[in-house]
Amino acid sequence: NIKMEMFDDFKRMNKRQVYYQVLNFGMIIASALMIWKGMMVATGSESPIVVVLSGSMEPAFYRGDLLFLGNDRSDPIRAGEIVVFKIEGRDIPIVHRVIKVHETHEGKIKFLTKGDNNEVDDRGLYKPGQLWVEKHHVVGRARGFVPYVGMVTIIMNDYPKLKYAVLGLLGLFVLLHRE
């Protein structure tokens, strides 16, 4: 019944209104992309918002919590910070705390990480033979925290069909609904 009403709206549109709806849809996509890329520029992080996927930082971060990242080049990495970094051969970035930093006189930094909830440091997680994390591994550094919000993306990733259903319905709604 609701579906039919939606299509009724669409049937009553003339050609111009249809173009307008399509352009409107494009605008939404483009703005979202611009906001994301703008945040990348502002924060210096290639992924300014990440969702916590593991329990290795409990009780600080739980699965589904949202982190805002920064990556200010002029502010060097120091022990005690929480960094998000990538390890070669692993798709998912790791969110862990820095427990050891060595910076040479030339300013080259290497550091060791550990999850608050883990018993040992991360050398077992790194690529075999890798002893340190370096600047080029870093995706960003945790600056802000919001709980639970990332749960939505976790549920969507766990149930891909739900993701496509929700995205499809939202897209359809924007395309067909007339203000």
């Binding site: 022990a79 427990i99 060595h102 910076e103 300013g107």
Partner: peptide, 26 residues
């Protein structure tokens, strides 16, 4: 939550900055 950590900081001929966390507590 508070994450407390005790840090040792020093300079060596090899490194300008060395920071080692010795102890922590939640």
């Amino acid at each position: 939550e508070l994450f407390l950590y005790l840090m040792a900081e020093y300079e060596t001929p090899r490194n300008k900055i060395n920071q080692v966390v010795l102890w922590d507590k939640i």
